[in-house]
């Protein structure tokens, strides 16, 4: 088994399918800001043994806000708390099979709510967005606060899986602004929900079956608000290597002036399902 971006292949097939999670990532300060308040984690683990093979992935993007370094502290605290919780309460139990199988959506929510308490307590003047995804067992679990986004990318198509908790998005939903007006609105950065804002926090959750062979993109607004969607699709379609694609996306945002911090995490979803449930199967 490997805990790193996994490249374990199956020996007994000639043309190995992409049966594990692969990812690329990048985060750049951009040109308009002095420091990078974005943060991300990518955790992809593969287990392959006689009993079967499974992949587990956790991907998180956070975009911090607040002066005096509070923003970068808030986003980094947030992703660490989320990752810590998910690894401990979901990944390790799955791997060892020692506890009951965890409810992944719930675990992800617990992680995000814990990060909310941590940020509220420790960074009273900071806050952050968070978009977090677990990939496991043929499903994608996403939770969302703020205006970082998750997209599903399939061939030349790309679809947002999250809904921004921003004032302008709400106005668009109410047909009070067109998406074009929203994109130029002077208050397009105003969120109505974020980590570290209040103890009570509602999360947007989504569980979906994993489209095999597709890609999952998590990014901060420094990418999606700056690079037109069509251009992002062009880059993604033309760049099969996910690390190279992340770098190109960031370069594209910088070509538009890089007004904000830019973060992208791009995950290649496996081509085929896991072979069996992991964990000790006999002696329980």
């Amino acid at each position: 088994m490997a805990l790193e971006p996994a490249q374990v292949t199956n020996n007994h097939t000639l043309q190995a399918p992409v049966d594990t999670l692969r990812f690329g990532h990048g985060s750049d300060v951009g040109q308009g800001r002095k420091n990078n308040q974005d943060a991300c984690t990518a955790f992809a683990a593969t287990y392959a043994a006689a009993q079967g093979r499974m992949s587990f992935g956790l991907f998180v993007v956070a975009d911090g806000m607040g002066g005096h370094m509070d923003g970068e502290k808030a986003s980094s605290l947030c992703i660490r708390v989320v990752t810590d919780h998910v690894v401990e309460a979901a990944y390790l139990p799955l791997l060892t099979g020692q506890d009951e199988a965890p409810d992944l959506m719930e675990t992800l929510n617990e992680g995000v709510l814990a990060s909310n308490l941590a940020v509220t307590e420790q960074m009273p003047n900071g806050g952050t967005t968070v978009t977090a995804a677990i990939i496991y067992g043929g499903k994608i679990y996403i939770t969302q606060v703020g205006d970082s986004r998750a997209y599903l990318v399939e061939g030349r198509h790309m679809k947002a899986l999250t809904r921004d908790h921003s004032l302008v998005q709400r106005l668009v939903e109410l047909e009070q602004l067109t998406p074009e007006q929203a994109a130029e609105h002077p208050h397009r950065n105003i969120l109505y929900r974020a980590i570290g804002q209040s103890e009570h926090l509602e999360l947007d959750n989504k569980i979906m079956p994993m489209p095999f062979g597709a890609r999952l993109l998590l990014c901060s607004d420094g990418l999606w608000m700056v690079v037109p969607e069509a251009e992002m699709m062009d880059i993604l379609a033309a760049t099969p290597n996910s690390q190279a694609a992340c770098e190109k996306l960031i370069a594209a945002a910088n070509a538009y002036g890089g007004p904000d911090n830019i973060t992208a995490v791009l995950v290649d979803l496996p081509d085929c399902p896991d072979i069996a449930e992991p964990g000790p199967t006999t002696d329980r």
């Binding site: 800001r33 911090g64 806000m65 002066g67 950065n189 969120l191 804002q197 420094g222």
Partner: peptide, 14 residues
């Protein structure tokens, strides 16, 4: 980096 959420919670510099 998001500019702000709520002036009450994230006051600008005095």
């Amino acid at each position: 980096m998001v500019d702000q959420i709520d002036t009450q919670k994230f006051p600008g510099p005095p």
